[in-house]
Computed example of a mutant assay.
Amino acid sequence: MRLKIAGPLVIGLVVAGCASMSSPPPRDPAPRPPTVSEGGDGCGAGPVQDRVGRHYGESLGESIRRESGAGAFRVMRPGEAHTLEYRGDRLNVRLDEDGVITDIGCG
């Protein structure tokens, strides 16, 4: 007799538990990263934008670093791992598979 009562009781508890579950509250979208503007960026990317489209070399990298005045500098090649934290004083130079600069920006 206990088995006849326990079965419906368990099913009832499971159904009640599922009914009380609700979806999580909606999240606010992540803020957009700052954009580079001529003279208004914290890493000095504006003055060196004319290097986009050129083949990257160590001497070009050094001139970009020097002219930008960036607090930190990194070259980002395809397939390499990079940290994702944003640093407004860091200048990122992105290259394509051929070593051509595709983007220069803060981050």
Rank of each mutant, 00 (worst) to 15 (best):
M1V: 11
L3W: 14
L3D: 09
K4G: 09
K4I: 14
I5H: 08
G7A: 15
G7M: 13
P8M: 08
P8N: 03
L9K: 00
V10P: 00
V10A: 13
I11K: 01
I11G: 02
G12H: 09
G12N: 09
A16D: 03
G17E: 03
G17N: 10
C18Y: 13
C18N: 12
C18D: 01
C18L: 15
A19I: 14
S20H: 09
M21S: 12
M21L: 15
M21V: 15
S22F: 07
S22E: 10
S22G: 14
S22V: 10
P26T: 05
P29V: 07
P29E: 11
P29Y: 04
A30H: 04
P31M: 07
P31H: 04
P31Y: 07
P33Y: 01
P34D: 09
P34H: 01
P34F: 08
T35M: 14
T35D: 11
V36D: 06
V36G: 03
S37E: 09
G39R: 09
D41S: 05
G44T: 00
G44P: 07
A45K: 01
A45S: 06
D50R: 12
R51N: 13
R51K: 15
R51C: 02
G53T: 01
R54W: 00
H55D: 09
Y56F: 15
G57D: 15
G57M: 02
G57V: 10
S59K: 14
G61D: 05
E62D: 14
E62S: 13
E62C: 01
S63D: 14
S63L: 11
I64Y: 08
R66E: 15
E67T: 10
E67V: 04
A70K: 00
G71F: 02
A72W: 01
F73R: 04
V75I: 02
R77P: 00
R77L: 08
P78E: 05
G79F: 10
E80V: 04
H82A: 13
H82I: 11
H82E: 11
H82R: 14
L84I: 10
Y86M: 13
G88K: 04
D89T: 13
D89I: 03
V93Q: 02
R94T: 12
L95N: 09
L95T: 08
L95Q: 09
D96S: 07
D98K: 14
D98T: 14
V100T: 14
V100M: 09
T102R: 15
T102I: 12
D103C: 02
I104R: 04
G105T: 08
C106Y: 00
